[in-house]
Nucleic acid binder design. Sequence first.
DNA 1: AGTAGTGATGTCAGTAGCTGACATCAAGGG
DNA 2: CCCTTGATGTCAGCTACTGACATCACTACT
Lengths: 211, 211
Amino acid sequence: MPMGRWEPNARDRLAQAAMTLFQEHGYDRTTVEDIAARAGLTERTFFRYFTDKKEVLFGGSDALHERIVTTIAEAPQGTAPLDAVAAALEAMTPFFKDRRDHVRARQTLLAAHAELRERELIKLASMASAAADTLRKRGVTEPTASLAAEAGIAVFKVAFERWLEDPKAQDLSRHIQLGLDELRAVTASTGTVPPATPPQRPARPAKASRR
Amino acid sequence: MPMGRWEPNARDRLAQAAMTLFQEHGYDRTTVEDIAARAGLTERTFFRYFTDKKEVLFGGSDALHERIVTTIAEAPQGTAPLDAVAAALEAMTPFFKDRRDHVRARQTLLAAHAELRERELIKLASMASAAADTLRKRGVTEPTASLAAEAGIAVFKVAFERWLEDPKAQDLSRHIQLGLDELRAVTASTGTVPPATPPQRPARPAKASRR
DNA sequence: AGTAGTGATGTCAGTAGCTGACATCAAGGG
DNA sequence: CCCTTGATGTCAGCTACTGACATCACTACT
């Protein structure tokens, strides 16, 4: 069984080399050439696999993207938009399960580099947009589709962050559920008519005010 | 009254020069040197005012940021989190009023350049984060604060987009109001129980490759 | 077998975004 | 009148990224 002319999995090798070097020497003190060299390739080849130096940290995002779309597309007839989105968020969790440490290391990098956070945000936005598209194909109209999708991503962002920090290490899935509940609570009973009964959590007892 | 040694408003001149050149020749065929030259300055000086070539398109964002924070901080005691955020969104609208054409031209640029959209997204995220901080100072706990803030930004994104496309040219303010209402509708009455009546017909699950 | 094609990679040269270090020079204060 | 200061200019350099072209093992077809 002759091996190919080149070592296989160039893409993965590059991604791994990058992650290692970023952690060892920091993001900006690692040049693309360094990464390529460590993977046994050249800079030019790196840019054939990744459009960007940043992109090397976002390998799994296509798979996530697809998972979201198919999950929403396959939701049972009559599922409410936000429930379809919730199902999609749920369907994302396996990608992170048992990888909390790895994910956390990645987040540390993102926290230190705005350019990387920018990339993360546009990936999330692109997922929201795809989710909205899919909802629209199911007959959901605007602005409902976009709002359900964007709200879902908002929940995911918050849940994800809390999952990473959770000392009790509860499932991401659990945090998503909590986030959704909290979103419903936050949007319920507000607007022009204040609730008769104060919600929960009065840090400072205050008189009800209207707007 | 002798003028200063240099023409005043270097920053504004740079921003204007950039906008003009971007529209005339496109974003990436305009070099920073071009921009600086048109403003009667040098490339080096450009980078003293803007960290980035991209940043030159995001001049007003600090003012917006501040407006959000102060509006939330000054909301009456007892205002529900989402209502405080809604007030902040409302307070942003004057920045755009009567500038729809200019804003639209800017959006055209963003639409064509992912790097610019990334920057826009991180600005919005930073506003959400600031809004959440301010809510927290008012005694709102996590994850309520973050969710209210992120949901608010989600509403703003959708409202903003619809405002730009609205053939009836209704106020941004109006679109925000509609967005908030729709958000409340989307999050209400959902959860585990789907509605009895199915919505409209979905399109056939089609093969679509994104990205 | 011989040959032509294909695909992943390498080589090279060039552009432009961005930075650090240092120079300049008018305005204002003492 | 000198000294400081702040906005700008000059210069050199790094590196992310791109286009054009070369290479060369492997494949497929004749």
